[in-house]
Amino acid sequence: MSVAAADSKTSYLLDKLQSLSGVVPIGAFLAEHFWSNSYALVSVGKYNDVSRELQQIPWRIMIETCVLFIPILFHGLYGCYIWWTGKSNAIGHPWMANWLYVLQRWTGIIAFVFIGWHLYTERFMGHGVTSYADVQRNLMNPWYLTFYIVGITCASFHLGNGLWNFACKWGIAVSVSAQRAAGWFGAAVAVAFTFIGVAIVIALHYGAFPLGGYVQ
């Protein structure tokens, strides 16, 4: 235990950036990503339009690098370091928040692997151009689908629980009641994101358009 053993504030800055990057830009991007992919629930045409729109934004590679690749890489790799500095003990001490801590660690690892794979298959293999048909073809594979559902659930939990952590760790929610409220907010985010994300991949898997009824 060596407070101020090194006076460097680097670790503080890195920790804070890790925490922040999970919310902005990564969390924000996840919201945007789920929003744009929700067009898969509407129609093929609309989905392809939105995808094309996004694939053709100016400064694309710069924006992707600065807003996505670097933050995700940093959040994930530094997250692995934080994972390494913890030692779960929820088996002997099965309190709710302790389990959330354990889940946060493991969902982070799973989500990081999933996102890496997802980026590789959907972003780099297709050289940045994918259509409804491409994605659907991948999701026909039940292993793909399973991994997607697991990955989306983990990422959504990690974000929702991370928002609760964020509220506590940035001193936003101090009182026990405020922390509880933040916890419910995080839970709602996790549930909503999981629902939307899973709905998208299942719809793609079956080629269904549950929200397509009112399009024309």
Binding site: M1, S2, V3, A4, A5, A6, D7, S8, K9, S11, Y12, D15, K16, I82, T85, G86, N89, H93, W95, A97, N98, L100, Y101, Q104, W164, N165, C168, K169
Partner: peptide, 21 residues
């Protein structure tokens, strides 16, 4: 507060909230 910014400081808390129990 500065003493709590270094390694081993406040940032190491990852909110498992066991302490209070």
């Amino acid at each position: 507060l500065e003493a709590l910014m270094g390694p081993g400081g406040i940032e190491d808390c990852d909110n498992a909230q066991n302490c209070v129990k």
